[in-house]
């Protein structure tokens, strides 16, 4: 033998998943929702998405290269996903400089201060979003009407989201039956014909992408299912008790950022639990907190806060919720 052979421990073959493939899988899954958004919101959706992605990727590159002095890893696609998800959580008439600030906070504070991909406790896109929400409440809560101003950007005609209409109406004592006339029907909610953030409007497109991620094994069903189920049950109980002052569970499932949050934000690998049981606890927590904020809290929508709060519990969940070990419980038959 005169040539060099490799001697390394087993295994000697590897699956073909890489971080990059998984991240791009998420990107592909988000494309249908982006298309629908461009259809309803026009150029605003394109501008916001482009600025968000470009600034997220640029900040990641600059911070890694000049601050951390390490090899930039932007090609792994994770900054791209953060950029896309941040954009999806912003209104399409948001001025460009606010988006850039959001991207800086998302990547700089949300991701890089903790050491980059894999080490961040909070979902970076949501860190960016919530920062903007607190700093620029006015700009962050005016949403363009769908269809009518597809050629306008910051000067688009705005309207209130169905959740905001319901929240304000109910607190002013208007019965639910009257409010239903002021908001889009279920079909429109499902397809995405309503005012809202760039990528959150179409449950249909988001669920289609979710299905794609499930079949490619990019995510598992536990987190989305537990969130949907807990929201459905919680709002269902309230609605059964008092249908006059409460929206029905289907409305809660289809409106706001619930589908986007449950399928794409809460399933973020780094910031969600490691075991199926842990995922259930995490998902139920998100569902319950979301509904609590929507119904009893100060804001009409609470998905982002709920996810961030539960992100904070993940280390605890991981420490105490363990997978079922083989041979642990000796039950023979």
């Amino acid at each position: 033998m005169d040539k060099l052979i490799t001697v390394s421990p087993s295994p000697h073959v590897y699956g073909d998943d890489t971080v990059k493939k998984l991240m791009y899988g998420v990107v592909y899954a988000l494309l249908p929702a982006l298309l629908i958004s461009v259809y309803f919101f026009g150029i605003g959706a394109l501008i916001v998405t482009t600025i968000s992605i470009v600034s997220c990727v640029a900040f990641e590159y600059l911070i890694q290269k000049y601050l951390m002095k390490s090899e930039p890893s932007i090609s792994d696609g994770s900054a791209l996903v953060t950029g896309l998800l941040l954009a999806f959580n912003l209104p399409t008439n948001l001025p460009w400089w606010i988006i850039v600030i959001g991207a800086l906070v998302a990547i700089g504070v949300g991701k890089m201060t903790f050491g980059g991909l894999g080490n961040n406790p909070f979902n970076p896109a949501l860190v960016g979003r919530v920062f903007l929400f607190i700093s620029f409440p006015v700009q962050m809560t005016s949403w363009p009407e769908p269809i009518v101003s597809r050629l306008q950007y910051t000067d688009a005609v705005t309207g209130a989201t169905p959740l905001a209409v319901v929240k304000e109406g109910l607190s002013a004592g208007v019965p639910m039956s009257r409010l239903l006339e002021q908001i889009p029907g279920y079909m429109e909610l499902f397809i995405g014909y309503l005012p809202g953030c760039t990528g959150e409007i179409s449950a249909l497109a988001l669920l289609a992408g979710g299905l794609y991620m499930l079949t490619r094994k990019i995510i598992t069903w536990h987190i989305p299912a537990s969130i949907f189920l807990s929201v459905f049950i919680f709002t269902g109980i309230l609605w059964l008790i008092n249908p006059y002052d409460n929206a029905d569970p289907l409305f809660h499932l289809l409106s706001g950022g619930l589908v986007l949050g449950a399928v794409y934000m809460a399933t973020d690998y780094v910031t969600s639990p490691m075991t199926p049981k842990g995922m259930w606890i995490f998902g139920i927590g998100i569902g319950v907190i979301t509904v609590a904020i929507r119904i009893y809290g100060a804001y009409p929508e609470g998905v982002s806060f709920a996810i961030l709060i539960m992100n904070a519990f993940v280390p605890l969940i991981n420490k105490y919720v363990k997978p079922k070990r083989f041979g642990e419980e000796v039950k023979n038959g």
């Binding site: 780094v270 997978p323 083989f326």
Partner: peptide, 28 residues
């Protein structure tokens, strides 16, 4: 095929846990 993939950070994708036949947490 004799060389391994480049090593990057654990992204906590949970795949190692879901394939472990002994119910362990390899990443940990």
């Amino acid at each position: 095929e004799a060389k391994r993939k480049p090593v990057v950070n654990c992204i906590r994708c949970t795949k190692c846990i879901s394939v472990c036949p002994m119910g362990l947490e390899p990443y940990l």
